[in-house]
Simulated scan of single mutants.
Amino acid sequence: MKSMVPRSFVKISIWMFLLIIIGSSGMLHAIANSAGEERVEKNVIVLYGDTLWSIAVQEKPTNVDTRVYIKKLKQLNGLTSGNIMAGEVLKLPVN
């Protein structure tokens, strides 16, 4: 007895099923990796006499340019200028 389902339909269905499985496993892998990464946020309290430059020199990784670090520091804290005041708490970029 001959099957009522065309052979091409079966092939296409199998390929679609495999593509869905592969795509889903890739998405799950990406989600699992992002959930497993732990980002530790570091803050610093601005002391009298501190500048963005002095904080950057003290806190930045050795392989990062000070100017680039200051730019990230300003963006992260919503600063439009380099003016900071003693007592402010600044978030430091995490690399």
Rank of each mutant, 00 (worst) to 15 (best):
L28W: 04
L76G: 03
V10A: 08
G87H: 08
E37D: 12
K71N: 12
L28Q: 06
T51I: 07
N63C: 02
K74Q: 14
K2N: 06
I22C: 04
A35R: 11
N63H: 07
L92T: 02
S24H: 10
S25C: 06
V68S: 15
I70H: 01
P61H: 01
G23I: 00
N95P: 05
P61E: 02
D50I: 00
L28S: 04
P61W: 02
K60C: 00
A86I: 05
A32H: 12
S24A: 14
R39V: 14
M27I: 09
L19P: 00
V57Y: 13
H29K: 11
M27K: 09
K91M: 07
A86Y: 09
G36R: 07
V68A: 14
Y48T: 10
L73G: 00
I21R: 06
S81I: 08
V94D: 11
L90W: 01
K91C: 04
H29Q: 11
E59K: 15
I14E: 08
R39Q: 13
K91R: 06
V57K: 13
A35G: 05
S34N: 13
A35L: 12
A86V: 05
Q58N: 12
L90I: 03
A35S: 09
I70M: 04
V44G: 01
P93L: 02
G82E: 14
N63P: 01
V46L: 04
M1R: 07
I14M: 06
A30Y: 12
G82N: 13
Y48M: 10
N83P: 07
S34L: 11
V40A: 14
L73E: 00
V46E: 07
T51Q: 10
I70E: 02
V44L: 00
R7E: 14
L90P: 01
L18N: 08
L76D: 08
A35Y: 09
M16C: 14
V64C: 09
S3C: 03
G82Q: 11
K2Q: 07
I70Y: 01
G23F: 03
V10E: 11
G82T: 08
Y48D: 11
E38R: 12
S54R: 03
L90T: 00
I45F: 04
S25F: 06
G26W: 04
S24T: 08
Y69L: 00
G23C: 03
G23L: 02
E37C: 08
I14T: 13
V57F: 12
V94Q: 10
V94F: 09
I31T: 05
S8Y: 09
R39E: 13
S81T: 15
R67D: 15
L92M: 03
A35C: 06
V64S: 07
R67E: 15
V5R: 01
L92A: 04
T66V: 15
H29G: 10
M85I: 08
T80K: 13
N83D: 15
K42M: 12
K72G: 13
L28M: 10
L18M: 13
P93A: 08
E88Q: 15
M4L: 13
E59N: 10
V68Y: 15
V94G: 07
K91S: 09
L47W: 05
V68T: 14
S54W: 03
Y48G: 09
M85W: 10
I84H: 02
L73C: 01
I21Y: 02
I70K: 01
K60S: 03
